[in-house]
Amino acid sequence: MFDRRNARVVVNLAVGILGGVGLCIALFFAIRHTDLRTPDPARIIGSTLVVALAMAWACWFSVRAHIAEDEYHRQREMADSFWGGWLGIGASAPVFVFIAMGGLHWLHLEGSARGQVFRAFVIGYFVPVVCATLGVIVARLWRRLRDKRIARQLIES
């Protein structure tokens, strides 16, 4: 059933995600024709502020969505985030070692020294973030499967 509480959660999440992603996309279009090799202060500070604003926007609406949920869903969200986050960070360790030991060379990402450093930085930054996100998704899927198994056992007993 899609009641008012669910509607509040979904609306807050949608506004948070769409607003945050929208700001990041706008930033991408604003700087895509600039020369990223030159350290333009306006671009660096502007981009940083826009991304900070996007994250603040997303966090604000995520908190509102979290508060709108009832205690059962809040507890599930926290458990998923906690275990998923740690699972993701743990999973990022071998990826980090792969890159640190020169694994990027096998992936044909070699190029100019500057490009290599840049890619290593970007990948290094995104690995834990992407892994943490995937960890949350895995934890959620695992919990849903467990819930279904318990429900099946209850029906059978």
Partner: peptide
């Protein structure tokens, strides 16, 4: 379950989880 959920101001899933022993409610609830 939906009736009870409405009276307690929680979702039907919460009532279902409590009934099936998957979730112990907080003291206030």
């Amino acid at each position: 379950q939906a009736d009870l959920a409405r009276r307690l101001d929680v979702t039907r899933e919460t009532v279902n989880a409590i009934e099936n022993g998957r979730y112990d409610p907080s003291l206030p609830l």
